[in-house]
């Protein structure tokens, strides 16, 4: 599991941006995670509670926004959202597709309290 490394990186990014904004406290983090990225929300939350203790991020809530995996068919242009297993284009059967979303793995924004 690499959720500990992910959580440490989150803390570093949040603290850096909070300091740059002269914030006293971080109260929430908004994460955007695509379905094609592997991450276990519960583990991140568990590590977060431990490693954020004693920092301005202590007690901050983690909000996970999961983005579905969506493909666009290069043959006929149909866009479709994956529900479970990866499948070829439902309209024409082509496997020549482009990934439209699902790769996301970012910290979108944070809520802070200013001094």
């Amino acid at each position: 599991m690499h959720e500990l490394a992910v959580t440490q990186s989150l803390l570093e990014i949040a603290l850096r941006h909070a300091e740059a904004a002269n914030a006293r406290r971080v109260t929430a983090l908004y994460l955007v995670i695509g379905r094609l990225s592997s991450m276990v929300d519960d583990s991140v939350q568990f590590y977060w509670d431990t490693i954020s203790a004693g920092t301005p991020c202590e007690g901050a809530t983690l909000h996970f926004r999961r983005v579905p995996a969506a493909f666009a068919c290069l043959a006929c242009g149909t866009e479709y959202v994956l529900d479970g297993e990866m499948t070829p284009c439902p309209a024409c059967g082509s496997a020549r597709v482009r990934i439209v979303s699902g790769d996301e793995f970012r910290l979108e924004s944070i809520d802070v309290e200013k001094a």
């Binding site: 490394a5 992910v6 990186s9 989150l10 570093e12 990014i13 949040a14 941006h17 904004a21 914030a23 109260t27 994460l31 793995f105 970012r106 910290l107 979108e108 924004s109 944070i110 809520d111 802070v112 309290e113 200013k114």
Partner: peptide, 16 residues
């Protein structure tokens, strides 16, 4: 007062 500030950074940016 709570303010929302944009970050938009890849989570493993330090590794990157």
């Amino acid at each position: 007062m709570t303010t929302n500030i944009p970050v938009v950074e890849r989570i493993l940016s330090a590794n990157d």
